[in-house]
Design a protein around this nucleic acid. Structure first.
Lengths: 334, 334
DNA sequence: TTGTAGGCGTTATCAC
DNA sequence: GTGATAACGCCTACAA
């Protein structure tokens, strides 16, 4: 059914070697025969079988995007925005993107020699052990915060500094009791955010404040209404909240509304990452901006450099974050 | 470097045939040798090469998701929400998802025998010609409105009815001059929306109103500020707007704001699809709800049925839409 | 129960 | 310039 290099060769009355040569643009074919072969390929509508080629060249032409299960949900705008950047980066190349959605399938995908490289969204320790990843022997670049001494190049926002900025912004607006809503600490991202929060409190002499971080049990805020409500209720003097992501902040805004808290009158809220919808919400979400598509694009470039043996310049690319003041923050008298 | 079936065979002192048998769980291997082989596989950390297997079994284990270039932007919540459904559907199977992002790459992906089937988001005629698609000979299911007599099974929202409902909702609230903001008519989805709009106007005896559709030149509203503004300004009596999608409606709300029009006081707006963020906006967007993840999941199930030779029941699965009244619509006296 | 051998569609190394 | 032919890693009759 499917037309192969053999069919072309037979039709053209040449050996498959010659056909293969014109396909891969290698020299050593008379221009007359080349023309003939080209014509036959056209007539027969020949298309190379990438699988077969991959078998001999030991490469697949595929890149895996691995998003931790659970935070998955392409709907999480953090991922979709970064992936838009990846799309842009990959357009220039000949690679395709392969994705799996369950953790078991992701593992299989990476083990089965069906990809040449990996773009890994900040993995959580429970899901992918570092040793296991290294054992794969695949070029890998990590997006987002990850183990500090990991062997993989990494592209990420300056989370620590970003959260620090957010706390400072609140401080400047008169807030003195500032909380942090964070994802489970099993994610390195959460640790970085915690560090930024802690560092800011210290610099501002606001005390340790470790009591004022809410560590969610799930990665999805919307599964945590009760603990969020309890957190707010038990801290009546708290006037400002910094969230580890916009996604979190949006959930917080929703929960606050159901509790009868109005933002920013009763509570100032700041997100992180500044995803596109942040500015569309009402009140528009104050956030810490970072070039999310840029991160995706740079990570892709790095991986492709790795794949093509080019020298990869910097092992750690940190994108700056800058506070954006919108409508969820307001001055308060303390 | 990479350990193959041969290595296992040699180590175990058996033929590759036996190893292959235990891998694929075929009978005909002594339980003693089977155990030995299993152990060696474990020790050597053997992983099958899917590419090689695909070569002989003539299948790749991959499914392509094709999203029309331009509307791409995983950030378009319509796509990300449906794809979330696809993810759910595919979790049960052993298939992986492959994506390309430029139109040229997508074509190559489909031609190169690197996928077993296709999930195609309502293609526009300029990008993928039906004849070309058929010629591929790949099991394909289409998501969203498409050519009526296409040979491919199709899962889609009842766009026509949905828009009809939206117009009626506005009518019931007293609106008599109702406009439609639509994407380029090269998309079948736009045509269906137009039909729903037209049909509603007729039933309500509101005249043809063909003058009151704005057909955007681009698929991205945000590139069309000027024409949207002109559209509004030239129709001072228009009090209600139906949009072909929530994505469009969100853009319209933004543009209206910059024009000093307030919603819903000056203008009632209804979106379509009811994507998750619709309810998070303020004012919360009135829309026509449809089970987007369900569409993705059903499409995936259909494709997998097709792929596994199971009987596929219905060639055309239409998901009902129902109007959801939120805050962007208001009564008006005409 | 086990092994041999041919083939899936390509590329690459030889000869001629 | 051109053509055999051996891989690549795997599956599968067919033999033994």
């Amino acid at each position: 059914m499917t037309v192969s290099i053999k069919d072309v060769a037979r039709q053209a009355g040449v050996s498959i070697a010659s056909v293969s040569r014109v396909i891969s643009g290698k020299p050593g074919v008379g221009s007359a025969t080349e023309a003939r072969i080209r014509k036959i390929m056209e007539d027969l509508n020949y298309r190379p079988n990438l699988g077969a080629r991959g078998l001999v060249k030991q490469q697949t032409g595929n890149i895996a995007i691995i998003v931790p299960r659970g935070s998955f949900t392409l709907n999480n705008p953090f991922f979709s925005t970064v992936i838009d950047g990846i799309a842009k980066g990959i357009d220039q190349s000949d690679y395709n993107i392969v994705m799996s959605f369950s953790s078991a399938q992701q593992k299989k995908l990476l083990e089965n020699k069906s990809v040449d490289g990996i773009i890994l969204f900040s993995p959580r320790s429970e899901e992918f052990r570092l040793e296991w990843l290294e054992n794969l022997g695949l070029p890998t670049v990590v997006i987002g915060s990850y183990i500090d001494d990991s062997p993989f190049p990494c592209v990420r926002p300056s989370d620590t500094d970003g959260i620090d900025q957010a706390v400072h912004a609140l401080y400047e607006r008169g807030h003195r009791h500032i909380g942090l809503v964070n994802e489970p600490m099993s994610s390195m991202h959460s640790v970085k955010c915690w560090e930024g929060y802690h560092q800011a409190l210290q610099r501002l002499h606001l005390g340790p404040g470790s009591n004022d971080m809410l560590e969610l049990n799930e990665f999805d805020v919307n599964a945590s209404d009760r603990s969020v409500a309890a957190f707010f209720r038990s801290r009546p003097t708290m006037t400002g909240i910094v969230c580890a992501s916009d996604y979190l902040a949006i959930g917080i805004m929703r929960i606050a509304a159901t509790m009868g808290l109005s933002i920013p009158e009763d509570l100032s809220v700041i997100g992180a990452d500044d995803v596109p919808i942040a500015s569309l919400l009402t009140p528009a979400l104050s956030s810490v901006q970072v070039d999310l598509p840029g991160i995706g694009q740079e990570a892709t470039r790095m991986l492709i450099d790795l794949l093509t043996g080019k020298h990869v310049d910097s092992k750690n690319l940190v994108f700056p974050m800058t506070y954006i003041d919108r409508e969820t923050t307001r001055n308060t008298e303390h």
